[in-house]
Each structure stands twice: as C-alpha cells, then as structure tokens.
Design a protein around this nucleic acid. Structure first.
Lengths: 354, 354
DNA sequence: TTGAAAGCGGTACCAC
DNA sequence: GTGGTACCGCTTTCAA
C-alpha cells in the first residue's frame, strides 16, 4: 500500500503544502489557477487525505461506540439503524460492541473504549441494569464525566435511576398499562405477565404499570401470575412451561417483548390447545410477531427513533453541551393482531405498515 | 476532555519520552527503577495511549469494515459475530456498514472506505451480485488490489466469478441438492423452488443443484416451479401468493432462506390448509424457523465460522499474503423439523442444539 | 540502559 | 493569495 501524501501532491502541483490543505478544506482563499493544479495532482496521484493524521490535532476520533447486549435481535438492530444513519450524516463512524448482556463484559468493554479514545458511547444495558452494583457502575461513568476526563455516555432502553446520564427510552409505563388494559377490555379476567429478569430496571417499572391497569379495571392483582424470563424465545418458552407446570390459570398474557411472547405461545400450543385460549400481547413490534400462528398483538416501539435520538443527545454532549441529565421518553402504539382477536388470518402485507 | 499525554507522563516520572514509550511497548531494555516510576506516573495521570497518534506512523488503522445488506437478519449478524470475535482478539475494530443490498450504495460505501483508510473490507454482496455490472465492480476492486494501491477485500456469501478475490461461502450446491433430495425421499414428487433475486449469483448455483437432484431422482424438472423472491419474509409471502394465484401444483418446496420459507408458509396457510400439504425446507438455520407452525426443516449454515474464516483470510492479506485468490467452501447440515415430518410438536428446547 | 530528535501526514497560525 | 513552520502524540532510529 503506497499511498501518496500531501507533500507529494504539493510537489506535483508546484505549490506549498498549505495550499493543498486549503484546497482540501475548501478554503476560499485560493486562486483558480492553483486550485486546479492541485486538483489535477490529486487526481494524478489518487490522493486521499489520511483520516488518522487529520484528526490527530483535534484529538477527535470521529468515532462513537454502541454497546448493546446482542446483535441478534432486530429490536436492537433497528435502534442501531437509527443511530448509524445519524452518525453517517455527520461523518462519524459508529462501532458496535456486543456485551452479551453481561455487566462484567459491559464494564470491560467500556474501560477498553476509554483507551480507544472514542468520542462517545451509547449504552444499551443488559440484564443487570437496575441492580445496586450496576447503578454504582453507571454512577462511576457519570462521576468521571463530571471530572471532565472521560467520555460522554448516553443510556438507551433503560432508566438511569441515579439520573446522572442522559437516557432515551420507551414509555414503558404507558405501554404496559395499555397492553394489560387491552386484554381486560376484550374480556380477559386473569392476565399473566411474563417479565424480564428481575435484575433489570424494566422489571419493576413494567410490573407496576401492569398492576395498576389490573386494579384500575377493578380486579385483584395476583402476583403468582408474574414470572421472569430471559429476553429470548427460549426464555419465554421455558418460563411458560413452568407456569403451566405450576398449574396457573390465566386467559391473558402480556410479555416483556415479542420474542418471549413467541416462545410462550409455542409452549401454550404444545400444551394442547391453550394457545387459542390465552390472548397474548407482546412488546416491540418486530417482524417475527407477524408470522407466528396466531400473529401476536404487540406494542410497536419507535426503535429507529430511539436510536437517532440517543445519537442526537450524545452528539450534543460531545459538542460540549453541559447541563443536567435529560430523559427522553418515546411513545409506542399498539398493533392488534390475531392473538387478541379471534378472527380469520390477516393479510401479511397489510401488517407490515409499521 | 483533558487527557494527559506521553510528555506529561515523562515529566512526572522524570524520564525521557522514549523511556515512557519503551515501557508502554514492553520493551526489555528499561531498568526496573525507571519502569516503576513510569507506571506510577501513568497511574497518577490516568494516562492511556492515544491510538490515533500511535498508528499514524504505521498507517494502519487497525480497523476493518464489514459491508453487508442488512443487520436485520440474524443470518448476517451471526456472521458478524464470527468476524468480530476474530477481530477483537487481534485488537482490530470491525466497523459495520449496511448497504441495503443495493449495488450503487455498496460501491459508494466502498469508495468511501478507501478514503477512510480502513485496513481491509469484508463484503457480503447484496442482490445484484452476479450481474455483469457487478462483476466489473468486483473486478475493479481486485485490479486495484494488484496495483498495490488499494485495500484488501474478501467476499463472503458469494462466489467471485472472476476469481480475483478471496471468498468464503457455504457449499450451496451440496445444500440445495440435499434439500431437494430430502423432499423427494419423503415422497414428494413435485418440488418447487423459491429462489433469491435472479441477479444474485446464488440463483443459478442453487437452481442447478435443485435441478440436478430432481433429475437424479428420476423426475422431470418443471421450470414453472422456480420462482424468485426477495430475501425477506414478505418476499417469500408475496412470491408464494403469486405461485398460488398461478395455480401451480406442488407438494414440496425449498427456499433460498428461512425468512422466505416462513413467508411462503404463511401464504400457504392463508390459502386454506395447503400449509399442511406442502413440505417445506428452508436454508440458514435461524431461530425463527423453529417457532413457526409447523417448524421448518432447514439447512443449518455455519454462520459464525463463515465470519471468522472471512476474517482470517482478510487478515492474511492485510499482513501481506500474496498469491492467488482462494475460495473457502463450508458445509451445512440439515435439521429436520415438522415441516417435513408429519408428527407431533417437538420440544422447543431440544431444537436449539445448533 | 537512556535520551535527543527526526519523522508520520496533516492543520492552522503567522508572515509576506 | 501564498508559503513557511510549529505543532498534534507517538514510534523509532541513532548516539551517548
């Protein structure tokens, strides 16, 4: 790899390095004569600026990191799309790091990132968000931020209970309230709730909304009907099997996400026809929830926007914005499908409106 | 952001910059005395090397790019996992770029990447891989490589018909032969084939294998039973609806991937019970194919390995390996599920063995 | 074993 | 308008 450099170009164009630099940066003060000579030389040598050298002075890497549990969920990849698009428009490279949802790995990744001098980090925390240890970790991020010696961090899909970092999330309270309410509205009396791991901060938030809806509707909350699960298909499947083994009775089910909902549905179907007796609502709005049988009613989360807004907040910090941590809460909306309607198939292509 | 630099550390440790650099790079020739002073100063100033500055000289970015159609398919994200893991172990940052499968966008991305001075590129081409224009493009990549002025490129999930670039792919010939053969073995006589867009090089390769299997089994190939589709659920759904509208008769179906298979299955079910009459085989082995009803028999592709091998080949090139383009062909294996078995449900957790 | 100093490829300030 | 040059932070000769 023998790249030409600015000196090269300058020699060929018979101008100074400064002039080449000016041309490259579209500075006004260059005569047409020299400008065209420079362009010619650039062409000739197939020159392109060395991005490493040009950012050396500014100490900006023009690179941010996105730390998230897994790339294997379209819920996340949609967030990434929003983030990436925002970045590309601003000539910033987003680098994706998978944490597996493990807090230790997350921490390692972030420590490493500091050594990488990335300009900023968007963190989508994994399953332990919400534990005391985690809060401490988050806190350390924010404290260091205040010391003005570390990298700006924005949280996505998570509440920063210590409120030191900017965060962007869905209005879970409203979503889970509506999900529950919808089931009650269609006549279900015993709504169960498949939640995420207890250690996640979402667990409490969503459960509270669920309970509130049940009570508002005039029913008693039965805590036996809440069960925790991993965020995956398999998690939902296993948790539902446990619920069935425990002999729980319920005719409605809300799930922490669509994967869990699909897994649970599968378990219900296996158990002999109960899949049709339990009305299910998922959360997220990923494509998979459309092709299950029955298709699953879900709350469509503004995934793309979650990503772009997270990026926006981060860029503001990177560009020096100070001030209190902000919390951005976005709404989701319900797509009613077969799992809560006992009607015929809906055409698949009309269901992709999201 | 006020980071300390090597000069800082040197002053505090009362040594020269060179010495600090030696310590940082674990050079042997430093006395314990100075070494510990340096460590102490590093600690004190929370110093970490500026990765931009340190690579300026070598012109290595320690960054490669992965260009792929979309992040929204776990098939691809699994490949990425293999790639990323390989990269991280070697302190190289993989950057992911989504092309949307559009050749123009791919080309733009790659041109841009050259300006970014990434060390290498893994390209998973989109739908037009295989067209003459595309071959020209690929060729330009490889020719320039020869001129020793461009970036090494490795193709994944694609055959380089001009054989100038390294590539890694599944043994599609074998896979699609087996898929077809499996259906014939279980007694199906008219096997249809839902292929990818015609412009992709896979189209021909897989179709040929399909035809060969049909002929080997002693049946006639009916070209009316081949239909092209986008790689998505919706694509499979629409293509199947067309096939049904055209009044085609078939009792078996192989699909270019699991998404297409799920979409097609959905369309068959909508059309009134035919879902149970047509035996379906997908390709890929993504989780979704397990939770459809029926679950879909599929070829499990070595996605992770595809990624890590692509990375391996690329790194070899980056490190100066010369020689002819290599083609690495990996095997896949079949997971037989309900769609080609007319038996009871299989337990979901036993199906995650992949 | 150590330090001085010349780059790496740019940017940006300063003089002309 | 233009060119000279002192950085940016680090690596790597080369002498001492």
């Amino acid at each position: 790899m023998n790249r030409s450099n600015i000196k090269n170009v300058a020699e060929i164009a018979q101008v100074s390095i400064s002039t080449v630099s000016r041309v490259l940066n579209n500075s006004a003060n260059v005569s047409d004569e020299l400008r065209s000579r420079v362009y010619k030389a650039i062409e000739e040598t197939k020159y392109s600026v060395n991005p490493i050298a040009s950012t050396l002075k500014s100490a900006r890497r023009n690179q941010i990191a996105i730390v998230l549990p897994s790339l294997r969920q379209t819920y996340y990849t949609d967030i990434i799309k929003g983030l990436s698009d925002y970045c590309y428009e601003r000539q910033v490279t987003p680098v994706i790091l998978e944490s597996g949802g493990e807090p230790e790995k997350e921490q390692k990744i972030i420590e490493n990132l500091e050594k990488q001098w990335v300009d900023g980090i968007v963190l989508i925390p994994g399953k332990n968000a919400g534990t005391p240890g985690y809060l401490e970790f988050i806190d350390s991020l924010s404290q260091l931020k205040k010391q003005d010696s570390r990298i700006p961090v924005v949280l996505a899909e998570c509440t920063d209970l210590s409120s030191h970092l900017d965060c962007v999330r869905v209005d879970y309270e409203k979503a889970f309230y509506q999900m529950t309410y919808h089931l009650l509205e269609i006549g279900r009396r015993r709504v169960a709730y498949l939640s995420c791991p207890e250690s996640s901060s979402l667990h409490e938030i969503c459960r509270e909304a669920y309970r509130r809806a049940v009570r508002d509707y005039g029913y008693q909350v039965d805590d036996a009907l809440t069960r925790c699960s991993e965020y995956t298909i398999l998690g939902g499947y296993q948790a539902m099997n446990e619920m069935l083994a425990d002999g729980l009775e319920f005719d409605g089910l809300i799930c922490v996400n669509d994967q869990v909902a699909s897994g649970a549905l599968h378990a219900l179907k296996e158990s002999g026809g109960r899949g049709e007796k339990v009305a299910i609502v998922g959360f997220g709005g990923v494509a998979m929830s459309i092709i299950t049988t029955p298709s699953i009613t879900t709350m469509i989360a503004p995934r793309y926007k979650l990503g772009s807004e997270a990026a926006r907040l981060l860029f503001e910090r990177i560009n020096g914005a100070s001030g209190d941590a902000r919390e951005l809460i976005l709404s989701s909306h319900m797509a009613i499908r077969e799992s809560t309607l006992r009607t015929a198939f809906k055409r698949l292509d009309t269901m992709f409106e999201e």
